[in-house]
């Protein structure tokens, strides 16, 4: 098998890798905000439950969560296993990443001084208006580097979907490595991930630049 054939074969799985990446972001970014708000809730029960959610999702390996979401229903309740693995994969990834994003959001929101809320109130802003128009834009700006960190990690974590037999790019690479007794597919995978992340870093960098309006 030539290197070009390997690249072509592995590219077939790249679409599935991208599917995990974009769908996870699509669900976990908003879900993370919801979790962050619940975590900061004044209701003790709500914030405690959310705290437990975050500590379980952050405290156990993603690989285990993938297995639990995919095969848990079968072993626990005798239910079936999804034929299309994208569904359990996205559920596990979104739940996991939402926990991380929630804590990043919370850090950002709590870093905004109390005085701004008071000032907004004096100026007649409602709580919603204050949060959406004054607090949130500042939060986004502050947390962007931390979010980029997580997004970059997500690119590399997509390879874990192999645990539940989702045939993404790295899985195909491993198949080729085995049948060809070659290390080349791993090199190719490394280059793929690096280029993917270079693109992510570029986009996030552009965002940061747009948001640096005080310079």
């Amino acid at each position: 098998m030539t290197i070009l054939t390997m690249i072509a074969k592995m590219s077939e799985g790249l679409g599935r890798t991208c599917a995990i990446f974009f769908l996870t972001l699509l669900f976990s970014l908003p879900l993370g905000m919801l979790v962050a708000l619940l975590r900061m809730s004044k209701n003790r029960a709500v914030s405690t439950v959310t705290k437990v959610y975050i500590s379980v999702l952050r405290g156990t390996p993603l690989m285990l969560q993938l297995l639990a979401v995919t095969y848990g229903p079968f072993y626990l309740f005798g239910l079936g296993v999804a034929r299309e693995k994208l569904v359990p994969v996205i559920i596990a990834f979104a739940l996991n990443y939402a926990a991380y994003f929630a804590e990043i959001y919370r850090g950002g929101i709590e870093s905004i001084g109390r005085g701004q809320y008071e000032a907004a109130e004096v100026l007649g802003y409602s709580r919603y208006q204050c949060f959406l128009r004054i607090i949130l834009p500042q939060v986004v700006k502050r947390i962007l580097p931390s979010v980029t960190n997580e997004v970059v990690t997500l690119v590399k974590d997509t390879s874990m979907a192999f645990t539940v037999a989702y045939q993404e790019m790295f899985t195909i690479g491993k198949q080729i490595a085995n049948s060809q007794t070659s290390f080349m597919p791993f090199v190719i995978a490394g280059v793929f991930y690096f280029l993917f992340n270079a693109a992510v870093a570029f986009v996030m960098g552009a965002f940061e630049k747009r948001l640096s309006y005080y310079r």
């Binding site: 095969y71 079968f74 296993v81 034929r83 037999a165």
Partner: peptide, 11 residues
């Protein structure tokens, strides 16, 4: 995992 999926009917 192959056996589990076979038993569960997903393969």
């Amino acid at each position: 995992i192959c056996g589990t999926e076979l038993a569960a009917g997903s393969v």
